[in-house]
Design a protein around this nucleic acid. Structure first.
Lengths: 334, 334
DNA sequence: TTGAAAGCGCTAACAA
DNA sequence: TTGTTAGCGCTTTCAA
């Protein structure tokens, strides 16, 4: 009783038409007489025929699948992007192959090649920085690539981001407006362009416009982890800091809890602004004032852009910048 | 200057061997003379040949891809599972196609069929409940299926879970030990077997063993959302409840914050235990005592089980039950 | 150890 | 409107 796979050929024979005709009705080609279409559809139904997407992919050179390279799905920041990507992908009848890279340069390349071997029609990449090697792989493949919430100095590929520099500047400005003299910049690796090029510059500009001195001692480089934030509390206090701009929510919550555990009152004694407005910012106590990056939208728009690239549609602008706002919560004074 | 795709045929010609031989060396078939292998490898390198996985899939009827149906990647509970799945998948050279279902019965079926059309070698399903329709689809396809953190009364397919009943019982026991008379059971839909069959029974058993009366009024059915938890605080207090077992972390944090906002001191006036030990339980203030489900491991073990199923290996037990513990934090008294 | 050749299930000219 | 016929790029007998 082995279940026999029904092929297009079986349907053609049963319906008394050619494979081509069956293929046409399956693909919604209008050049089929209604009566024929009806007959074929009936047979398809009766035989429970399901087209084999792999064969289709080989013949048409389209897999309706896109590769998504993500540092870590279990990180709420990236998974929010991923959700936006998948929803739009589904909307356009694509599936996504999701591959975790841990932000590791080697893995990223390996994963990319694996994805290309699977003939994905496009790739969405999330990562903190783009190595030359990776850039090389991108450009030698003809497969369209879009960076989601990742920036590349020379934008050969599409990308969707917010204006990190301005956003940071606004956040730091808000802190300066509240009279803080020592405002910390709490970041992940400064080698990542979003931190080192965009945000840090925004931070410096804001300081400058408020006639505050920039000191390297107030720039804290650490990991995007809850624990790291917690541990940072002590060091930050020792530096006489009274306000901080933090680039990551998990880190920010760690810092918040670390400060609170040391008896610091937020926002009375210390004000803090985080960057991603993920659920964590809302959940934390006190809840965290945050730059609102439209994470879901960044994912969604990235995928939308990718569909255009895959269709070779005319693109007005390969580099999309989405608007951001600042959501005031309880980690800053009203 | 169109980049010509290099096929196995090109390699064969350049190396002066047949396609079959190239195929053998690519697939590591030992029946190739070392000298020949070397020659072929050189040509592959020189031409930068990359095998087309789609063609391979069509010819071999294996895609080295598995489908993963997930209610929502952006939910930390599921994304933790997903991470475990992907890591093991990578280890065994599989890729995952991730598809969000929103836990919607219709979508689940649609997504499953889509995945099967793509000829995935196996499917991992996460979802709160399995409808008959879905069960039907599972059994009529020959593709192996594993449920990750989802239970099915008649276990036709593989599954990996913890013992929800016992875990719940232990949690409620701990609350009863602390002298609480009115312990709430805060759940998602009771129609979902994990809640309605497993956990609720564990709750009832614990009550019974402590000679506490079971009242429907102390069973709260709501959504797995932060907001829902927050809103529940008022209702719960009105019922004279002094302790709660909550099935979901997001919900639990919502409830915790809702209670705290109303001036309730946790754990002094109210004790609470949650179920998933995700990052949220750690981040919340007070931090939440939680059943520790090894989420990553459940995902990892599910995928491992699936590889066995796909290889038609002998399985000792299709239904895996992983151990759980209770992590004591600050939402319960020491 | 190697090669020839028949598919895998479908799409897409091209012809009719 | 429909059918014929090449492939798509690879794996896998079967023979040599």
């Amino acid at each position: 009783m082995e279940r026999q796979t029904i092929t297009i050929y079986d349907v053609a024979r049963e319906a008394g038409v050619s494979m081509a005709t069956v293929s046409r009705v399956v693909n919604g080609n209008p050049n089929v007489k209604p009566a024929t279409r009806k007959k074929v559809l009936e047979v398809i139904e009766r035989l429970d025929y399901r087209p084999n997407a792999v064969a289709r992919g080989l013949a048409s050179k389209k897999t309706t699948t896109v590769g998504v390279i993500i540092p870590d799905v279990s990180n709420i920041f990236f998974s929010s992007l991923a959700r936006g990507i998948d929803d739009v992908a589904t909307m356009y009848k694509y599936n996504i192959i999701l591959a975790n890279s841990d932000g590791d340069d080697q893995k990223e390349i390996q994963v990319l090649n694996n994805l290309l071997a699977k003939q994905v029609d496009g790739v969405i990449f999330m990562g903190m920085h783009i190595t030359d090697a990776l850039r090389g792989e991108f450009s030698r493949s003809k497969t369209p690539v879009v960076l989601a919430s990742s920036i590349d100095p020379d934008d050969q590929v599409g990308s969707v981001n917010i204006d990190y520099k301005s956003a940071t500047k606004e956040a730091v400005q808000l802190l300066a407006d509240h009279g803080h003299q020592n405002i910390a910049f709490v970041s992940g690796s400064l080698l990542d362009p979003i931190n080192g090029k965009e945000r840090l510059i925004g931070y410096k500009e804001a300081l400058q416009e408020n006639e505050l001195k920039y000191t390297e001692g107030l720039v804290f480089e650490t990991k995007y982890e809850y624990k790291s934030g917690e541990q940072l509390a002590e060091r930050i206090l020792n530096c006489g800091v009274t306000a901080a701009y933090v680039v990551d929510d998990e880190l920010a919550v760690g810092l918040t809890n670390g400060l609170t555990d040391r008896g610091i009152k937020i926002p009375e004694d210390f004000e803090l602004i985080t960057s991603n407005n993920s659920l964590l910012a809302e959940i934390a106590r006190p809840s965290l004032t945050s730059i609102s990056q439209p994470l879901y939208d960044i994912g969604a728009v990235s995928m939308r852009l990718l569909t255009k690239l895959m269709n070779k549609e005319e693109i007005d602008e390969k580099t999309v910048v989405l608007p951001h706002t600042i959501i005031q919560r309880d980690s800053t004074k009203a």
